[in-house]
């Protein structure tokens, strides 16, 4: 039995090593000077916070105030706080829209019998299999046609559309695990259908809603393709696009990019840690349920 325990811990430790090491390296490098990073050892001998200062310097909100005094990559770094705010706005609204639209659709799919339900489910599943790159040109022209290029709304619409099918699918699964007697008794007590939905059902469904909400938030935060396609100025550029701008600039120190990477990942990781239980039970349970 003891042998079994030791083996279990050893294997689990190896698994965690696999999951954590690559990103841990980025964190460690972000506290090194470029010269030290080039010697490829892992623990910073003289930990420095220098790679983070450029990001926290006085923010830049336009693309015009680039100065000659900026170090390599410094200008992009100064735009960072603004990009974080952009991503926060996008991801939060994508989350809200997913929860609202998604729960309405999923509720009907989970609770009401109607012909065409199966077709509708397959349709949602099918739209999820359309790759973003397959519709980029018409999507771009459509967004441009409405004058929405380079706006928050463009990103929010695109991300919401692409996350909704998954949200609906998961929520439907989750809703089906909730006993129907709840609404039935509310209806008998004279509640309307929508009244029963919002006052009795939704409070019970909260854990599932949190799970898909966080999922939609993190999906939008990390999405790159549509963000790249639909934004061009710092007024709407999210962090994923900004951090990839570094890669385009020549001779930016990798340590500076590493610090940026850590900052980009900070919010989604904190959210994932806080809501770990909800994510594992909510998403996993609904898929397999």
């Amino acid at each position: 039995m003891v042998k079994h325990r030791i083996g279990l811990y050893l294997l689990s430790f190896l698994a965690v090593l696999y999951l954590v090491t690559p990103f841990l390296w980025v964190v460690l490098v972000s506290f090194m000077e470029e010269r030290e990073a080039n010697q490829h050892h892992w623990i910073p001998r003289q930990p420095t916070f220098d790679n983070y200062w450029p990001y926290l310097a006085k923010g830049s909100v336009t693309d015009e105030d680039k100065t000659a005094g900026d170090a390599v990559g410094g200008f992009t770094a100064r735009q960072f706080p603004r990009a974080i705010i952009n991503s926060l706005i996008n991801a939060s609204l994508v989350m809200v829209m997913n929860l609202f639209f998604g729960s309405l659709a999923a509720y009907a799919l989970a609770r009401v019998d109607f012909s065409g339900k199966f077709v509708l489910l397959l349709f949602y599943l099918g739209t999820r299999s359309v790759p973003g790159v397959a519709i980029m040109v018409p999507m771009y022209l459509l967004i441009r046609g409405y004058g929405l290029l380079d706006t928050h709304l463009a990103i929010i619409l695109a991300h919401t559309t692409f996350t909704l099918p998954f949200t609906i699918w998961i929520l439907k699964g989750y809703f089906q695990t909730i006993p129907i007697d709840l609404e039935r008794s509310a209806r008998i007590d004279g509640c309307t259908r929508l009244g029963a939905l919002f006052r009795v059902f939704m409070p019970v469904a909260t854990p599932g809603m949190i799970a898909v909400g966080i999922f939609a938030f993190i999906s939008s935060w990390g999405e790159f393709f549509f963000a790249l396609l639909l934004t061009s100025s710092i007024g709407s550029k999210p962090v994923t696009v900004l951090i990839s701008d570094f890669a385009q600039e020549l001779q930016v120190d990798f340590t500076l990019i590493a610090a940026g990477g850590v900052l980009v990942v900070l919010i989604p990781i904190v959210l994932a840690f806080i809501f770990q239980r909800f994510i594992i039970h909510g998403i996993g349970g609904a898929v397999t349920g």
Binding site: V16, L19, G222, G261
Partner: peptide, 18 residues
Amino acid sequence: RALLLIPWAVPGVVNGLM
């Protein structure tokens, strides 16, 4: 289990740069 979620939270672009 919490650490398990780290790779999932890392955006694809950051993953590439990493």
